[in-house]
Amino acid sequence: TTTLTYTDEEEARKAAEELKRRGITFTYTKRGGTWEIRIK
């Protein structure tokens, strides 16, 4: 499992869109002031 952490929502959203485009499965979690993208 790879976890990407972002403090900028815009960056996190761009990363999530890129992963979706590649067909990669991930979970997206907001934790306080950070956003976590966990790639399975």
Rank of each mutant, 00 (worst) to 15 (best):
T1L: 12
T1I: 14
T1R: 10
T1E: 12
T1K: 08
T1M: 13
T1D: 13
T1V: 13
T1H: 12
T1S: 13
T1G: 12
T2N: 09
T2F: 11
T2I: 15
T2C: 15
T2V: 14
T2M: 13
T2D: 08
T2K: 11
T2L: 15
T2P: 06
T3V: 15
T3R: 07
T3L: 14
T3E: 03
T3M: 10
T3G: 03
T3N: 04
L4A: 03
L4S: 03
L4W: 13
L4D: 02
L4Q: 05
L4V: 06
L4M: 10
L4R: 05
L4H: 06
L4E: 03
L4Y: 14
T5V: 14
T5H: 09
T5L: 13
T5N: 05
T5G: 02
T5W: 12
T5K: 08
T5Q: 07
T5P: 02
Y6E: 00
Y6G: 02
Y6W: 03
Y6H: 01
Y6N: 00
Y6S: 01
Y6I: 02
Y6K: 00
Y6C: 03
Y6V: 01
T7F: 12
T7M: 09
T7I: 08
T7L: 09
T7E: 09
T7W: 10
T7C: 10
T7H: 12
T7Q: 08
T7Y: 13
T7D: 09
D8G: 04
D8A: 05
D8M: 05
D8I: 09
D8S: 14
D8H: 07
D8Q: 06
D8R: 07
E9H: 06
E9V: 05
E9Y: 08
E9F: 07
E9P: 06
E9T: 02
E9M: 05
E9S: 04
E9C: 07
E9N: 03
E9L: 05
E9K: 05
E10V: 11
E10A: 13
E10W: 13
E10D: 12
E10C: 14
E10S: 13
E10N: 12
E10L: 12
E11C: 12
E11D: 10
E11H: 07
E11I: 05
E11M: 09
E11G: 05
E11T: 12
A12Q: 01
A12V: 02
A12F: 15
A12T: 01
A12D: 00
A12P: 00
A12L: 04
R13F: 08
R13K: 14
R13T: 08
R13M: 13
R13V: 09
R13E: 07
R13W: 08
R13C: 13
R13Y: 07
R13N: 09
K14G: 06
K14N: 09
K14I: 07
K14P: 01
K14Y: 06
K14E: 09
K14R: 12
K14H: 09
K14T: 08
K14D: 05
K14M: 10
A15G: 03
A15F: 10
A15Y: 09
A15W: 05
A15P: 00
A15V: 14
A15M: 15
A15I: 08
A15K: 13
A15R: 04
A16W: 03
A16R: 04
A16H: 02
A16L: 09
A16F: 08
A16C: 12
E17F: 11
E17L: 10
E17G: 08
E17P: 00
E17R: 11
E17W: 10
E17K: 09
E17N: 08
E17Q: 11
E18C: 10
E18V: 08
E18P: 01
E18L: 09
E18Y: 11
E18R: 07
E18D: 12
E18F: 10
E18A: 09
E18T: 08
E18W: 14
E18I: 10
E18Q: 09
L19V: 01
L19H: 01
L19Y: 04
L19R: 01
L19Q: 01
L19M: 04
L19P: 00
L19I: 02
K20Q: 11
K20V: 11
K20L: 13
K20F: 10
K20M: 13
K20I: 12
K20D: 07
K20N: 09
K20Y: 09
K20T: 14
R21V: 07
R21W: 04
R21L: 09
R21G: 06
R21A: 12
R21H: 06
R21M: 08
R21E: 08
R22L: 14
R22C: 13
R22T: 04
R22F: 05
R22N: 07
R22I: 06
R22D: 04
R22Y: 06
R22M: 12
R22Q: 11
R22W: 08
G23M: 03
G23Q: 03
G23F: 03
G23Y: 02
G23R: 03
G23H: 04
G23N: 05
G23T: 02
G23E: 03
I24Y: 09
I24A: 04
I24W: 04
I24V: 09
I24G: 01
I24E: 03
I24N: 02
I24K: 03
I24C: 07
I24H: 03
I24Q: 03
I24F: 07
I24M: 05
T25E: 15
T25V: 11
T25G: 07
T25L: 14
T25Q: 14
T25Y: 11
T25N: 13
F26V: 02
F26G: 01
F26Q: 00
F26R: 00
F26Y: 07
F26D: 00
F26L: 02
F26A: 02
F26K: 00
F26T: 01
T27Y: 07
T27M: 05
T27E: 14
T27L: 06
T27A: 04
T27Q: 07
Y28E: 06
Y28Q: 06
Y28P: 02
Y28T: 08
Y28N: 02
Y28A: 05
Y28K: 06
Y28L: 15
T29H: 12
T29M: 11
T29D: 06
T29V: 11
T29W: 06
T29I: 13
T29R: 08
K30R: 08
K30T: 06
K30E: 13
K30P: 06
K30Q: 12
K30H: 10
K30N: 10
K30Y: 13
K30L: 05
R31E: 11
R31L: 14
R31N: 14
R31Q: 13
R31M: 13
R31C: 13
R31G: 06
R31A: 10
R31D: 09
R31Y: 11
R31V: 15
R31S: 13
G32F: 05
G32I: 04
G32W: 03
G32R: 04
G32D: 14
G32N: 14
G32A: 08
G32M: 05
G32P: 04
G33F: 10
G33D: 15
G33N: 15
G33T: 11
G33I: 07
G33R: 05
G33Q: 11
T34D: 04
T34M: 15
T34F: 15
T34G: 10
T34S: 11
T34N: 11
T34W: 13
T34Y: 15
T34I: 15
W35S: 01
W35M: 03
W35Y: 09
W35K: 00
W35F: 10
W35D: 01
W35A: 02
W35T: 03
W35V: 10
W35R: 01
E36L: 11
E36A: 02
E36N: 03
E36Y: 14
E36I: 15
E36R: 03
E36G: 01
E36P: 00
E36W: 05
E36C: 04
E36H: 05
I37S: 00
I37C: 00
I37H: 00
I37K: 00
I37R: 00
I37E: 00
I37V: 03
I37F: 03
R38P: 00
R38Y: 09
R38T: 15
R38M: 13
R38H: 12
R38C: 15
R38K: 14
R38Q: 14
R38F: 08
R38I: 15
R38S: 13
I39S: 02
I39G: 01
I39E: 01
I39K: 01
I39H: 02
I39L: 07
I39Y: 10
I39F: 10
I39V: 06
K40P: 14
K40V: 15
K40S: 14
K40Q: 14
K40G: 13
K40D: 14
K40E: 14
K40R: 11
K40Y: 15
K40H: 14
K40A: 13
